[in-house]
Nucleic acid binder design. Structure first.
Lengths: 114, 114
DNA sequence: CCCCCCTACAACCATATGGTTGTAGATATG
DNA sequence: CATATCTACAACCATATGGTTGTAGGGGGG
């Protein structure tokens, strides 16, 4: 069995909302339940609950039972997956610049091979 | 005058679509115009044009006139902005783990301050 | 046991999103 | 100039998204 490939649509989609990014930030400390989180935002408990569900689906946070609450914690691996994709794009960008530099450094009298 | 703060909604929203991520990847090489890009995807030219517009608004690519084409290039700074936010979350996560380690390392006979 | 608090989930609504087609403006080329 | 190609943009449609309210389940505390 293969490990599932990261679902970048879900990951970046989850991060594309200010409320959800703020939940990720707060959940780094891993102390608050959903209703405690909800108190920070001008929206209903159910709305925050949905945001947490979206973050959970994306693998960016986890919920853990604690008494009658469910404590929300950010998932370090989820963040890392997103970061690595951006890293790869930047690496390709750098490689491209290096190729261009190499081209510019070539003897200008030489013709590039077809 | 202040420089505009990054619009993370737009940036992550732009990255939350597989076609747009693929455009970012291809545009790293900065060679193709919109119609050339469009040939890679099973959708209309206009649809690809919209995707490019979304990426441009997000600051992830730039369009540059070249003859009658407009060459699409990825914008390195846009990628960097997204990455840095994820970096900060991870830093906070690490700081939290350090704090927890510090707590666990305390003399277990001492009571934490209320 | 009863009650309260936290969570889960369904139904609904308005607006955003991702696609389409069609029309019009620029720019090379015959 | 005439024409073909690339780009821009508007109008439209189906579905996804972000919010609401209402109802029901599950665990502590009196």
């Amino acid at each position: 069995m293969q490990i599932a490939p990261p679902d970048y649509d879900r990951i970046f989609g989850a991060l594309a909302d200010a409320t959800r990014r703020d939940i990720v930030r707060r959940a780094v400390d891993g102390q608050e339940g959903i209703s405690e989180l909800a108190a920070h935002y001008p929206m209903s408990f159910a709305a925050v609950q949905k945001h947490v569900a979206i973050l959970t689906d994306a693998g960016l946070v986890t919920k853990q039972r604690q008494g009658r609450r469910k404590v929300v914690r950010t998932n370090r691996e989820g963040l890392r997956v997103a970061r690595r994709l951006l890293d790869r794009y930047q690496e390709q960008w750098t490689a491209r610049v290096d190729r261009m530099s190499a081209l510019l450094a070539e003897d200008p009298h030489e013709e590039p091979p077809t």
